[in-house]
Design a protein around this nucleic acid. Structure first.
Lengths: 234, 234
DNA sequence: TTTAGGCTTATTGTCGACAATTTCTTTTTA
DNA sequence: TAAAAAGAAATTGTCGACAATAAGCCTAAA
């Protein structure tokens, strides 16, 4: 069920395949966050020429996983707290709107499908209670469905094609197995209900709250951590 | 004052320069919207090798001005009504949030600067009343300032680095010299006031209304046009 | 000892050629 | 005549080599 690539564009060219491998490697942290990328080295590792490697790098840059400077080279983006919070702000705006559009544009079948997914998730969650991993994938599945449901190519491309690789990267690197699992679950059902009622305004508000809550959760953790650090220094 | 490239990253490499030239050519319609791109032909026209042309194409793809399919080639995006409306929806979400963040994060100097700009625009508008061109540039200037004022790299990159080239393209291709000039002007001052008051919530609402109003204005025009077409057919 | 300047090395940008794939044309067959 | 298959032409993807730029190192002067 879980899709790392919801837009479903299969890789045909070798640059595509290397792109997917590197994307995976960066998200999982195998290629260290913040590290410099050596074109000759990576070309050797993947057994390809520098040209096709550069093609792959271009796509990685497109989804904000690396940054390039002319005549200097590429670096893997480094995961910072500020970057994470900025990402949440952006998601709040985009996914909020996507959710509003989903309430207006989703077909009845899509809604039924989404409800079924939620039910399936609820059962696996009951079985594996406390195991956050499945909930994480379920969370992504849910968000993907809503975004695709907006039927807005621009939004879909921006969120699924670009931002979500970064989201997954942060989740992996910061080891975010959110303890908000059960709360998030209730929020998901509320959102689906609003979509089902075709209430775009409410759907947007709920989605924004849902994402803002995650952000605040993190902000609190940071504040907490800074506090204990302060105490330990004394 | 007016900036086509608000992020100010000067082109150093030849691929950069060709990218800027082609970007201009596409936005202005010199390279026809929807047309297929021939790599050999363009490489010859710009006197560069196919490799560096492809580098330029990659950047054009990054700001959604062209679309590529593996083993098939690139096309300039074609400007459709649906695409334009989707763009407005996306802008409403992103710029609304950027405006909220600007109210929270802009420095006092930035705000003063923005107020000065508005005043300057108001004077040129009084002088050249009815001439929409200056207002158009002024409109972009205003929006750029707000977006940069959000101090959110993610938002800035998405809007200024990607969406706004498309916005300018649509404006050129559809010849949108908005008759909303004077109304838009008042809306701009309201927004600046909200930012000045550090009222993020209101600032977002006003910006969203401002953009939504433009969208509805277009939707009405379309509906009107369809109506007259229907009548003429009889 | 530190800083400035020039040299060496390594990395990125650009080029032209070949391979793989698609598309168009022509030929064959029902 | 129409449809399908085979062949030809053109286009895109990939490769290795060279040129231009940046980074590191070493020497020399203050």
């Amino acid at each position: 069920m879980y899709l790392a690539n919801p837009t479903q564009q299969t890789a045909v060219t070798t640059a595509d395949k290397v792109f997917e491998q590197m994307q995976h490697a960066i998200v999982e942290g195998e290629i260290t966050s913040g590290s410099k990328i050596s074109e000759p080295e990576l070309a050797k590792r993947y057994q390809i020429s520098r040209s096709t490697l550069r093609e792959a790098l271009n796509r990685l840059e497109k989804c904000h996983l690396i940054e390039r400077k002319a005549n200097v080279g590429s670096r893997v983006v480094d995961c910072t707290i500020e970057g994470l919070l900025e990402l949440y702000i952006t998601r709040e705006a985009l996914e909020g709107m996507a959710c509003r559009q989903a309430a207006l544009n989703m077909s009845d079948e899509e809604i039924v499908d989404m409800q079924a997914m939620l039910k399936a998730h609820s059962q696996t969650q009951e079985l594996k209670d406390g195991v956050a991993y499945y909930q994480e994938e379920g969370d992504l599945d849910f968000h993907y469905k809503v975004i695709l449901g907006s039927h807005n190519k621009q939004l879909i491309d921006l969120i699924c094609g670009q931002l979500y690789h970064l989201v997954r990267m942060y989740r992996c690197q910061f080891g975010m197995n959110s303890p908000r699992a059960s709360r998030a679950f209730n929020e998901h059902s509320q959102i689906i209900q609003a979509i089902c009622d075709r209430d775009g305004e409410l759907a947007e508000i709920l989605m924004r709250r849902h994402i803002a809550a995650s952000r605040k959760n993190i902000e609190n953790k940071i504040a907490e951590q800074n506090l204990t650090e302060l105490i330990n220094r004394k």
